[in-house]
Structures are given as C-alpha cells and as structure tokens.
C-alpha cells in the first residue's frame, strides 16, 4: 500500500476511535445525570471538541478515498483526455483549499491560544488544531491523487 493510503487508513482508525469515545462520553453524561444525580460538567465541551477532531481528520482521509459528494456531470460528458484534465483541475482546487485551511487554520489556532475552553481548562486553540492538520493532509492527498490520476469521488462504488 502507498504511503498516502496508509496515512489515510490510520486517520480513519483514529477518527473511529473518536466516534466511539464520543458515544461513551454522552452515555456517561446521561448516566451521571439520571442515575448518579450529578451531571458531569466536562462532557458537553469534551464531546464537541472531539467531534471537530474526528470530522476533520476523516474529511482529510475522504480526499484520498474520494468519498466527498460532488457533481460528476462535466467529467462524464468529456472525452477521456479532457476528463483527465477536469480531474486534475478539481484536485488542484482541493489542494489549494487545503492550503488555505493549513495557513489560516494555523493563524486561527495562534490567535485564540490564550482563550480557555470552559469546564475543560484547555486552550481554545486545541479545538481548532485539527483544521490546519486536516488542510495539510488534504493538500498532500489531492496532489498525490492528481499525480496518480485516481478519480476524486465515485459515490456509486463506495
């Protein structure tokens, strides 16, 4: 398997663990309030931060796996040669937007570094950190896809 493929698989595994952890946290929240009569104060914020992390990490893997929804009309109408050009153009746009996420996501993390997330006591920047990471991965994945000329998405055979 390629390096990008391995990274993508690893991202999905980490994200799946995040989803399972979020399930446990909300389950604990209900248990604490209804059974123990004492609501844990950290569960709401913790699950929200976790969701940003796993959504953006999995969304980056989605650029490698090509699971993001898109309109494929132009590509299917084009000749094979032009279809290849269209695919490369699409991946270039995705890579560019990934770089935007990297650059301005990093700026975002830096700007809010001394804001605190209530009830967790950690920096707000940690909630935004997955965006630049995801952006970098998206750009790398998109460029690799363009080079290998794999289709960006194919909803039917997912």
């Amino acid at each position: 398997m390629t390096m990008t493929g391995q990274t993508s698989n690893w991202l999905i595994r980490v994200s799946a663990a995040g989803l399972i952890a979020m399930t446990a946290i909300i389950g604990w929240q209900v248990f604490g309030r209804f059974v123990l009569g004492s609501s844990p104060s950290w569960t709401e914020q913790a699950s929200l931060v976790l969701m940003i992390w796993y959504v953006f990490l999995a969304a980056a893997a989605g650029v490698h796996e090509g699971f993001h929804i898109r309109i494929e009309l132009l590509e299917t109408m084009s000749s094979p040669r032009n279809a290849r050009r269209v695919r490369i153009a699409i991946q270039m746009f995705v890579a560019a937007f990934g770089l935007v996420l990297l650059v301005f996501g990093s700026q975002l993390v830096w700007l809010v570094r001394d804001h605190v997330i209530p009830s967790l006591g950690i920096s707000r920047g940690l909630a935004y950190l997955p965006l630049p990471i995801s952006g970098l991965l998206m750009a790398v994945f998109a460029l690799a896809q363009a080079k290998a000329d794999r289709p960006p998405a194919a909803a039917e055979d997912r």
Binding site: A16, L19, Y54, V55, I69
Partner: peptide, 13 residues
C-alpha cells in the same frame, strides 16, 4: 465505527 465516521464526516464537512 470506521464506516460511520466516513459518512458522518462527509456530511458534517
């Protein structure tokens, strides 16, 4: 979990 996180991330993105 792995399958769900793909679907969910696609929608939430």
């Amino acid at each position: 979990a792995a399958k769900s996180v793909r679907t969910a991330s696609m929608v939430l993105f």
